[in-house]
């Protein structure tokens, strides 16, 4: 009898353990935009097909996007971006793999706006750099949305801008992230 109870408890515990890795939320249409500001020209582009997975238990956070899905207001810019700067044929994806370091402060049952810290590896143009940034997680009725903004220095990722257009493209680009997550069932 006693053995039976312990085995039952063990099973329940195992299940709860499994569940602890089951707090997965994801999106297939997250939005990442970037903005380059110089005295001569402001350039912005949006990507609305960003994939992201966040584990609300461990704080593990991933992003993945296709560089050629960035939409520019000027067609020529989009071609130059893919052909000359990002070399999207060679490096089709940009990714981020990291962690929300203060995931423990978040209570999914408590609606609210949580300011969080994120760190991890950002891979652009085949170069991986460790970055840290802050962001906001908004919990509302169990739904999660996230926003963040950080700067990326082009030289860090070995993206060369030809001298003829250096005045038109900022050296550091502001990247804005905005995702509405759904729960993985």
């Amino acid at each position: 009898m006693k053995r039976g109870i312990i085995i039952l408890l063990f099973i329940i515990f195992c299940c709860s353990y499994c569940n602890s890795y089951g707090q997965l939320y994801f999106t297939k249409n997250g939005r990442i935009s970037f903005f380059s500001k110089t005295g001569l020209e402001n350039i912005s582009a949006d990507n609305n097909q960003v994939l992201s997975v966040v584990n609300m238990e461990t704080g593990a956070l991933q992003f993945s996007l296709l560089n050629n899905a960035f939409f520019f207001p000027k067609a020529k810019m989009q071609e130059d971006f893919n052909e000359n700067y990002m070399e999207s044929d060679k490096y089709p994806k940009s990714t981020f793999k990291g962690i929300i370091t203060d995931i423990g402060t978040i209570n999914l049952n408590n609606d609210g706006n949580y300011h969080v810290h994120v760190k991890g590896d950002l891979t652009i143009h085949g170069v991986t750099k460790n970055i840290t940034t802050t962001g906001d997680l908004i919990i509302k009725n169990g739904n999660i949305s996230a926003t963040a903004s950080f700067k990326v220095l082009l030289t860090d990722y070995n993206i060369k801008i030809p001298t003829i257009v250096t005045d038109k493209i900022a050296k550091d680009i502001t990247v804005t992230v905005s995702c509405n997550y759904e729960k993985k069932l």
Binding site: Y21, F26, K28, V53, N55, E57, T58, A60, Q62, I99
Partner: peptide, 24 residues
């Protein structure tokens, strides 16, 4: 320890991401 490991992406997370990428 898993929860404390700041850079580790658990197996199921990575699997979900590669599933999404394949779907897309």
């Amino acid at each position: 320890t898993g929860a404390q490991d700041t850079t580790r992406i658990a197996g199921s997370d990575a699997t979900l991401m590669s599933q999404l990428e394949t779907q897309e």
